[in-house]
């Protein structure tokens, strides 16, 4: 392919990536260093609201934004440097807690609490997704051709379900006297409340994520299994390799690039864990970094939102993903370079 054709093919997607990924990223990066505040004034306001039997009127000093001549709120944009990052990370409190090895105190700070959960969630689900995905792929690959179709269809179902809906359905199975809780209570003969403490919710969230994402890993691995060199496998059989040894020394090395690929995708996805928090309404016990950003962005009843801190939190999330991906990216890069030489 000559350079011109190549540019014509790649150009549009590069343009769109710049427009929809790079530009917002730069904008968020900039916003994390500035705060925009309305100019406020103190005014005496008399407010009359319904009461029984007549209205109640209260006069109080209220603080309200000044409206400019165009009828819009007058705002003031201020450079604050790293202050928003500071407010998200709360390094003073974190350090005070760390100095005395008081991890409980550290985990009462939103960011660190979220980071703890996000990391645990990501690192625990990663091997499970790969393991379960591989297991299903090998099972399906060894199944007779006749039942292969239905098995593939059924194992893909969790992947098709909208994440929030999937999370909600699992929540409804377990919340209060949900079917599963009622069953467990009957079986174990004791009172169970899955949503009354953090660790049970955390387990449910991880279970849900593995259930939801394993089909994706399965799909990729199953495709990979079709390209395993049959000659190598046959010679391994002749050499007396057991089923396990064939898996360990032939199949897994062959699938390694795909395993790295699935890991990359999974790390990126699960570091942004969000649906589970909302679906299982676990905010009281477990929050994630992405949820923290969302919470800062959500306006309250009075319309306040913390754009600057939300931007800082988003940037920190991105930095976290990059740090997590570095080992895998380095491996891919080395393989890539090795391939060339």
């Amino acid at each position: 392919m000559n350079t011109k054709t190549f540019a014509a093919f790649v150009g549009p997607s590069i343009f769109l990536m710049l427009l929809f990924i790079a530009a917002p990223l730069v904008s968020v990066f900039m916003q994390s260093f500035y705060v925009t505040q309305p100019i406020f004034e103190q005014v005496e306001v008399e407010t009359c609201t319904p009461g029984f039997p007549t209205q109640t009127c209260v006069t109080e000093t209220k603080i309200q934004p000044v409206l400019g001549e165009d009828g819009k709120v007058v705002t003031d944009v201020k450079y604050v440097g790293l202050e928003s990052y500071y407010n998200v990370l709360e390094p003073d409190r974190a350090w005070a807690a760390l100095k005395v090895f008081d991890f409980d105190a550290l985990l009462t700070i939103d960011f660190w609490k979220a980071l703890r959960f996000t990391l645990t969630f990501t690192l625990v689900t990663l091997p499970l997704v790969i393991g379960v995905g591989l297991a299903i792929a090998i099972t399906v690959n060894n199944a007779t051709r006749m039942i292969r179709g239905p098995i593939i269809f059924v194992s893909l179902l969790p992947f098709i379900i909208t994440p929030v809906i999937g999370a909600l359905s699992i929540r409804w199975l377990f919340i209060g006297d949900g079917i599963m809780t009622a069953f467990l209570e009957w079986w174990l003969n004791q009172d169970i409340a899955m949503f009354a403490q953090g660790w049970t919710i955390e387990l449910l969230m991880m279970f849900y994520r593995v259930w939801h994402v394993a089909p994706f890993a399965f799909l990729v691995f199953y495709a990979g299994l079709q390209t395993v060199n049959q000659d190598t496998l046959e010679s391994a059989v002749i050499d007396g390799a057991s089923r396990w040894e064939r898996l360990r020394y032939v199949i897994i090395p062959h699938l390694m690039p795909l395993i790295v690929f699935v890991s990359l995708i999974h790390l990126m996805d699960s570091y942004r864990v969000f649906e589970e928090i909302v679906g299982f309404s676990s905010q009281a016990y477990r929050i994630s970094l992405q949820w923290l950003t969302y919470d800062l962005l959500t306006p309250d009843d009075s319309g306040n939102r913390s754009i600057s801190r939300a931007s800082a939190s988003a940037m920190l999330t991105m930095i976290g993903i990059v740090v997590l991906l570095i080992p895998l990216l380095r491996k891919t890069w080395r393989d890539h370079k090795g391939g060339r030489v």
């Binding site: 306001v45 008399e46 407010t47 009359c48 609201t49 319904p50 009461g51 039997p53 209205q55 009127c57």
Partner: peptide, 10 residues
């Protein structure tokens, strides 16, 4: 009814 009118500064 007068009770329904939410008045702010009159």
């Amino acid at each position: 009814t007068p009770n329904q009118l939410i008045k702010i500064n009159g």
